[in-house]
């Protein structure tokens, strides 16, 4: 599904991703962990085509198509969805108008108002969202939890087959995390071929979405990969202590 080869990415004259490689197959859940500033969020935005980042070299393939020449909306139409760490607040643009335009754009067909309302209300109910949020300006005045739920509502409505969750768990209280986690799990169960790339600091969300692979990033690339146990180890020891343990073990070996 997604294949990233030797990706080098620059922003503000600084290399952020340095020969980054990753393969995510159909239906797999991958997790990327790592301390702040190692390039995790950059990776998510480069996959989505953020103009703020310059791809120096390397490739990103999605279902064998080269993503790099495509605009952000074209990537979204291929089925990629980025749930953002900080969803944008856009004053004046109603959430309803935004969602309806997005669904119509993705499906290349204007969705009927009745059909849209039914889908929206069902999704909002499953996420325990206040229905009033659908009529408000996009993310304006939403709490951290409401913003993240609105991102998950978009997943339900746009039905992507590759989902990137960029620190979806940040800003969520434990109850909201449970609702969001369960909703994404339900989506994944209903769409087993959907792949998920989770960027997180905390393994709590992984209790809902059991990963196939966990990768640890540092200095713009993956330096270790493992399974769910690796995420639990990170939670226990942290990145720095764990690195020291690894170094001692390496020396002893």
């Amino acid at each position: 599904m997604l294949k990233i080869e030797n990706l080098i990415v620059k922003a503000n004259n600084k290399i952020i991703l340095d020969k980054f490689n990753l393969i995510v197959n159909d239906g797999e859940i991958h997790v990327i962990m790592g301390p702040n500033g190692v390039g995790k969020s950059t990776l998510s935005r480069v996959i989505m085509g953020d103009y703020n980042y310059e791809v120096i070299s390397g490739n990103i393939y999605f279902n064998n198509d080269n993503l790099l020449p495509l605009s952000t909306d074209e990537r979204a139409k291929k089925g990629i969805f980025l749930a953002m760490q900080y969803p944008m607040e856009i004053d004046g643009v109603s959430n309803q108008d935004f969602l309806r335009t997005a669904i119509s754009s993705i499906n290349n067909k204007r969705i009927g108002l009745y059909d849209f309302i039914i889908k929206c209300e069902k999704g909002a109910e499953e996420l325990s969202m206040d229905k009033d949020l659908i009529h408000r300006s996009l993310n304006v005045g939403f709490s951290g939890g409401e913003k993240k739920k609105n991102e998950v509502l978009q997943i339900k409505l746009l039905k992507p087959n590759f989902i990137i969750l960029d620190e979806l768990d940040s800003g969520l209280d434990i109850d909201s995390l449970k609702i969001v986690g369960e909703n994404i799990k339900k989506y994944k169960d209903e769409n087993p071929n959907t792949s998920i790339l989770i960027i997180t600091h905390h393994p709590k969300i992984l209790e809902f979405l059991k990963p196939d692979y966990v990768h640890i990033m540092d200095k713009g690339r993956i330096y270790q990969s493992g399974n769910y146990e690796l995420a639990l180890e990170i939670e226990k020891f942290g990145y720095i202590d764990r690195k020291n343990i690894l170094t001692v073990e390496d020396k002893n070996a």
Binding site: S71, D73, A76, L82, D97, T101, A102, S105, Q154, L158
Partner: peptide
């Protein structure tokens, strides 16, 4: 943000202006 949801550049501008 709008384009990451499949909305074209032109439609994204329209949405913001309309808003």
């Amino acid at each position: 943000y709008l384009m990451s949801r499949g909305i074209t550049y032109k439609s994204a501008i329209n949405l913001i202006v309309k808003g």
